[in-house]
Computed example of a mutant assay.
Amino acid sequence: MRIDLTGRRALVSGSSQGIGLAIATELARSGAAVVVNGRDQAKTEQAAAGITKELPDAVVVPIAADLASAEGAESLQAEAGELDILVNNLGIFGAKPVLEIDDDEWRRYFEVNVLSAVRLIRMYLPGMMERGFGRVMNIASDSAVVTPLEMVHYGMTKTALLAVTRGYAKAAAGTGVTVNSVMAGPTHTPGVEDFARELVGDDLPWDEAQRQFMREHRPYSLIQRLIEPTEIGNMVVYLSSEQASATTGGAVRVDGGYIDSILP
């Protein structure tokens, strides 16, 4: 299958590092013009420069904005212009006993992980519907259906994204716009590597620490390793394409078989 996104313009929120950066890179590799976003101007520009160094012909626009606020989303929209592809990747996570999560922390996780996506969809979906083409993807997680005891507040936000996705897909019915969730499994990013070491200790070599983390904390993974961010980027590229025109309202899994269910 040959996917060519030339002529399409994409935004990946929270793409100055990790999964978001991998998604932005793969979209650019497929020909899309890509808006890279992060809160820090220097880091966002550095991420964009890294993509263009790897892909000299790519069109990459860095826009620093804090999308956890309405003001940040509005400032980004003013600079980014119209979009064909919206990837809501921005998210925070961290381990905390559920009985110790206070009201402010619940609100912060919902604001960053859910409302940031809702705001951008609300901004960009109408224009996509009017033009008869659009692709919206919300980066969810296996934690949406397998609630992790060590971070229930994070899992709650990813479950909410599945409902948000389905609702907006219904709103876009019959317009040529698709809205999907991408359910990422345990993924090899610096943040997850730090998180794994918090759980298994700092004294082990990484390969051994990864195996122990998967064995003790993610034992249902069928690939028995962390997913590489590019693998998630590949799924996003497909869902962004004309070839994925009949896939909408879904929760598409890139979880390494971690979710022990036939359906999400």
Rank of each mutant, 00 (worst) to 15 (best):
M1G: 15
G7E: 09
A10I: 00
G14S: 01
S15F: 07
Q17N: 15
Q17D: 15
I19C: 10
A22L: 03
A22E: 06
I23M: 10
L27W: 04
A28R: 02
R29T: 14
S30D: 13
G31H: 05
A32L: 00
N37M: 08
G38Y: 03
R39S: 14
R39N: 15
R39C: 13
Q41T: 11
A42K: 12
Q46N: 11
A47R: 06
A48K: 00
I51H: 00
A65P: 03
A65G: 06
A78K: 14
E79T: 12
E79P: 08
A80L: 05
I85T: 01
V87G: 02
N88L: 10
K96V: 10
K96T: 06
L99Y: 10
I101A: 13
W106I: 03
R108N: 14
Y109T: 07
E111L: 00
V112E: 10
N113V: 12
S116N: 13
V118K: 08
L120P: 03
I121T: 08
I121R: 05
R122N: 11
E130T: 13
G134C: 04
R135S: 01
A140G: 13
A140M: 04
D142A: 09
S143F: 02
P148V: 12
V152E: 12
V152S: 10
K158E: 04
T159M: 07
A160R: 08
L162F: 01
T165N: 12
R166V: 06
R166M: 12
K170N: 03
A172D: 02
G174T: 04
G174I: 03
V177S: 05
V177Q: 06
T178A: 07
V182A: 11
V182R: 09
T189L: 12
D194V: 09
F195R: 07
A196E: 12
R197A: 11
D203I: 00
W206T: 11
E208G: 01
A209R: 06
R211W: 06
R211Y: 07
Q212W: 13
M214N: 08
H217V: 15
R218A: 14
Y220F: 14
L222W: 05
Q224C: 05
I227A: 04
I232A: 08
Y238A: 02
S241L: 01
G250Y: 00
V252S: 04
V254C: 04
G256Y: 04
Y258D: 08
D260H: 08
S261C: 10
I262D: 14
L263G: 11
